[in-house]
Amino acid sequence: MPLNISQPKRKNAISLTPLIDVVFILLLFFMLTSSFVPWRIVDTPLSVATDAPAAPEERVNVILTLKQNNGQVWVNDEVLSLSDSSVFQTLVSDNGDAVFIIQAEDGVTLQSLMSLADRLKLNGAETVSIANAFAMPEAK
């Protein structure tokens, strides 16, 4: 009589295919909806047009003008190169607590403006104002 000893059979696992299907769908969902852009914000407070004259500004203003996207900026009729860090260091240390106002002519891109603001900040400028670059040119 043959012994009917059944082999300890490998336990029938739940089929993996549906599990993988679901996991793949989840994976696709998260891959497509995720955003990895590190968004940050820069405040550009706008002044409201009022009749009252603006409060007298005690601090010195240094006006920087961007004319083109070539990495050059005009300060007091001088051309400075954005890549030259030492020039900006001198500019900032010479005008310790000045307000650095950035102006831009037509055609200058937003990235150029932000790069200049970054350059000033990196060299220790306390107050950089970019709002002027967005002001409508006064009607002449």
């Binding site: 852009v37 968004w39 914000i41 706008l46 002044s47």
Partner: peptide
């Protein structure tokens, strides 16, 4: 500005 709003922020990366 014409709408009278002053709190504006630019998005950067």
């Amino acid at each position: 500005r014409l709408a009278g709003l002053t709190k504006v922020s630019l998005a950067t990366q």
